[in-house]
Design a protein around this nucleic acid. Structure first.
Length: 488
RNA sequence: GGCCCGGUCGUCAAGCGGUUAAGACACCGCCCUUUCACGGCGGGUUCACGAGUUCGAAUCUCGUCCGGGUCACCA
């Protein structure tokens, strides 16, 4: 028997918005395929014409490209199972539905929207809140008459009324649903388009999809899919249902992650300063656990590590703190040149066209930044000295008092004025030498210098680094101003 | 409400009948240090509850409670 090659598919509908939940599904689909040496397919599910959004497909392409999920087949790259856009496959579905009608497994339904609505609002609560199967047993002649008259119709699948349908899920194990819970679902809508459920089954079969990976909100509707596979006599794929991603509400409760939890779109997160690699790494761990203790993985490493049995059943709460930590990890792992390159727009935001010792700036920022967005706020003081109170010079730790700080500043200024080569190393040697000469702890001297240079108690980088970036003239100006403040 | 799924530190989680119940984020403390950050070390009444099976239960069974999902001509 020939071993079947694993094929998974990401089947988003083009809404113009890529939710992290969707992205995580795409990621797992990719990882399952790639870890098993299979193929990852992109299929656009645009059967809902009313929801069509201009440019939405590009959002999907761009997102996948940004996170590095390269699909083997899809609308843009082609493949032997195309077309990969459902609206272009439109004519393909109806014959399948008609086949089912001929075989007595489906039927035409002429019920109007109004009648259906009244059903939902009706008082007599049937066990299944849905369709009452009004057209299921319409006489043949009646059906033909309505068809001939051009009456709008949908095609519904006949569901078994008793017994139960069971299936095996790779994550959740055996799931059993009573058939009486199942509604006679619509296969073909009155506009001629297939419903999502129907198109999904047809396409998954036609495209040889072996693993259907999706959120667990589909868990209870899976029997409907299987009944369709069975009606056609097709092989049922392996199901991999994924646990839900939750968001934390303000009152501390949790619910399905949605916009009210803040940035839940991939684009939103990127806009907030999260790197695509960090996002991928983090969401990979939301609902899946690697074998070892390592958590920082590139996409390639994830592919090596991934296995379905590591997927958990319980829902996971999206934690921005941890994402932020991952972001910091990725930032710190960058080559300094790369950091400078990515930070440059933010450097420019503060310094305009001025030239600064960018490498020094990078060396102090890279270890302590978790998002590039933080940079302007962190280094704004370099461009403009903030107002600050004299008490800043008092440091309880090194027991520096105001008089002492004044003294130190005076010494520092005198010493610094003589420096010709205003470089960090030179400043370092000079100031530490001075501290030694004065027989004070480094902190005693460096604290007031840093405060005067920055006007802030907490700064990225130390005194020498700040002075180096400021340049000689500006540094001395600030130190003298600090001295004035202490004396005044 | 019916049906389905879940419940191990605040969060992500390992665990698969015998463990001092891993690890990570966050938090707190200490160290390093020139402040912060980075890094290092350390800390926290965590197995929802109640029965049962068993010599032994976080692990198996049942019930309760709690949380979530789903019941469309949406996907």
């Amino acid at each position: 028997m020939e071993k079947q090659i694993v094929r998974t598919r990401f089947a988003p509908s083009p809404t113009g918005f890529m939710h992290v939940g969707n992205l995580r599904t795409a990621l797992y689909e990719y990882l399952i395929a790639k870890s098993l040496g299979g193929k990852f397919i992109l299929r656009i599910e645009d059967t809902d014409q009313e929801r069509y959004v201009e440019g939405a497909v590009d959002v999907i392409y761009n997102t996948l490209r940004q996170v590095g999920l390269k699909h083997d087949e899809g609308p843009d790259v082609g493949g032997e199972f195309g077309p990969y856009i459902q609206s272009e496959r439109k004519n393909l579905y109806l014959p399948y539905a008609e086949q089912l009608v001929r075989e007595g497994k489906a039927y035409y339904c002429f019920c109007t929207k109004e009648r259906l609505d009244s059903l939902h609002n009706g008082e007599n609560g049937e066990s299944f809140g849905g369709y009452d199967r009004h057209c299921r047993n319409l006489p043949q002649e009646e059906v033909q008459r309505l068809l001939d008259a051009g009456t709008p119709y949908v095609i519904r699948q006949k569901m078994p009324t008793e017994g139960s349908t069971a299936f095996q899920d790779a994550v959740y194990g055996e799931i059993v649903i009573e058939n009486r819970e199942l509604e006679d679902q619509i296969l073909i809508k009155s506009d001629g388009y297939p419903t999502y459920n129907f198109a999904n089954v047809i396409d998954d079969h036609l495209m040889d999809i072996t693993h259907v990976v999706r959120g667990c909100e589909y868990l209870t509707s899976t029997p409907k899919y299987n009944l369709l596979y069975e009606a056609f006599g097709w092989k049922i794929p392996t199901y991999v249902h994924l646990p839900m991603i939750m968001g934390k509400n303000e009152d501390g409760s949790v619910s399905k992650l949605s916009k009210r939890h803040g940035s839940t779109g991939f684009a939103d997160l990127v806009k907030e300063g999260y790197l695509p690699e960090a996002i991928v790494n983090y969401i990979a761990l939301l609902g899946w656990c690697p074998k070892g203790n390592e958590e920082v993985f590139t996409l390639a490493e994830l592919t090596k590590q991934f296995s379905i049995d590591g997927i958990s059943k319980s829902p996971a709460v999206f934690d921005y703190d941890k994402l932020t930590w991952f972001n910091g990890e990725y930032i710190r792992a960058m080559q300094p040149e790369e950091f400078t390159k990515q930070a440059m727009p933010y450097y420019r935001e503060v310094f305009g066209e001025q030239e600064k010792p960018w490498d020094v700036l990078t060396s102090i920022l890279q270890p302590r930044v978790t998002k590039f967005l933080q940079i302007p706020e962190l280094i704004g003081f370099l461009q403009e000295l903030p107002e600050y109170p004299a008490e800043f010079f008092v440091n309880k730790k090194s027991k520096t008092n105001l008089e002492n700080s004044a003294l130190m500043l005076e010494e520092a200024i005198a010493c610094l004025e003589g420096i010709g080569d205003w470089k960090q190393e030179m400043l370092h040697d000079t100031l530490l030498g001075l501290a030694q000469k004065l027989e004070v702890k480094n902190g005693t001297l460096l604290w007031p210098v840093r405060i005067a240079a920055a006007g802030m108690q907490v700064t990225p980088g130390g005194a020498m680094e700040i002075l180096a970036i400021l340049g000689k003239e500006e540094s001395l100006r600030r130190l003298r101003a600090g001295l004035e403040k202490l004396k005044g």
